[in-house]
């Protein structure tokens, strides 16, 4: 049992059940800060500089991506976009199968997200709320495997995919990430406090089957955590590079591997490369403006649970 507590000490112990709205996990502190005094000009000045640093690389790609390579050779970098953007977009479309890559990335990330969230919620619910033999031991196993870099198993995985004849197919990218230990752990931590045991018992007394209880009690309660897990799973599947690079070829790429091909020639046309970078960032930028709050609360909730 000591192993359980020690392992758990390294990771968050419980979901934040006290705040019903997961978006505002720490309301009690009244907006953070040491005191209620409003911070001064200096604070906003620093934050403004930070904002510039964070935005500038993206803005720079827009500037270069809408000009041509000559923009790069001037001593003082141009600050405003030029008029070459659509020509460069056309060049990107000619050099890589952009739409196919976009479609592949959407399918891969979508399927992985559905699978990870479904199986994590099922297993997380079982670990959080059901009693069965070996539960603690198996949970310790899940937590331990979170620290294991399973990505290092790529060589046997590649041999396996080759034997199955899956190399070049997007299935080969999907299969290795269908479940994650982190997902199970995350859902378990959330569900353990968010569903009262009485609710499950009441559903059982009313004659609901186990799966019925899961569906009608656990899933509705788990929805906020499922949303956050979806967001992060989608992001990580979308950004994955090494494994798709190994198993897919240039004709059937993901957005990331296609993007890397733009730079693979010995002569690199940076305005086209950076146009590609801009195009590939747009989907996530949209996601960021739609779900940025959830992303932030997901990161922050994960950080201090309990």
């Amino acid at each position: 049992m000591t192993a359980t507590t020690e392992v758990a000490a390294a990771v968050p112990l419980a979901a934040p059940p006290t705040s019903p709205d997961p978006r505002k996990p720490r309301l009690r502190r009244g907006g953070g800060g040491t005191f209620d005094r409003r911070p001064g000009f200096l604070t906003y000045g620093i934050l403004g500089v930070l904002l510039l640093i964070n935005v500038y690389p993206l803005w720079w790609s827009v500037v270069v991506g809408s000009r041509n390579n000559q923009a790069l050779s001037s001593d003082w970098p141009p600050l405003l976009p030029g008029g070459n953007f659509w020509i460069n977009v056309g060049e990107v479309m000619d050099s890589i199968p952009f739409w196919k890559a976009l479609g592949n990335s959407l399918i891969i990330s979508g399927v992985i997200t559905v699978s990870v969230v479904l199986f994590s919620t099922l297993a997380g619910y079982a670990f959080a709320k059901l009693k069965f033999k070996g539960r603690n031991g198996l949970m310790v196993f899940v937590i331990t495997t979170m620290a294991i870099p399973t990505q290092l198993g790529i060589i046997p995985l590649f041999i396996l995919m080759k034997q199955w004849g899956w190399t070049g197919e997007i299935g080969a990218v999907i299969v290795p990430t269908l479940v994650t230990a982190f997902g199970v752990f995350f859902m378990r931590q959330y569900l353990v406090d968010v569903i009262p045991d009485e609710l499950i018992e009441a559903a059982r007394v009313d004659g609901a089957s186990m799966i019925g209880t899961f569906w009608h009690v656990a899933v509705p309660a788990a929805r906020p955590a499922m949303a956050i897990l979806s967001l992060f799973t989608f992001m990580s599947a979308w950004t994955d590079f090494l494994w798709p690079l190994l198993v897919l070829d240039a004709t059937n790429p993901t957005l990331q591997t296609a993007l890397s091909q733009l730079q693979s020639a010995r002569y690199v046309d940076f305005s086209i490369v950076l146009t590609g970078a801009v195009l590939s960032t747009l989907p996530l930028l949209i996601l960021f403006f739609v779900a940025g709050r959830q992303l932030i609360s997901g990161i922050m909730q994960g950080a201090v649970k309990g």
Partner: peptide
């Protein structure tokens, strides 16, 4: 209780 493996995962 500390950070999660959000990042790691």
């Amino acid at each position: 209780g500390t950070g999660t493996g959000t990042r790691k995962g």
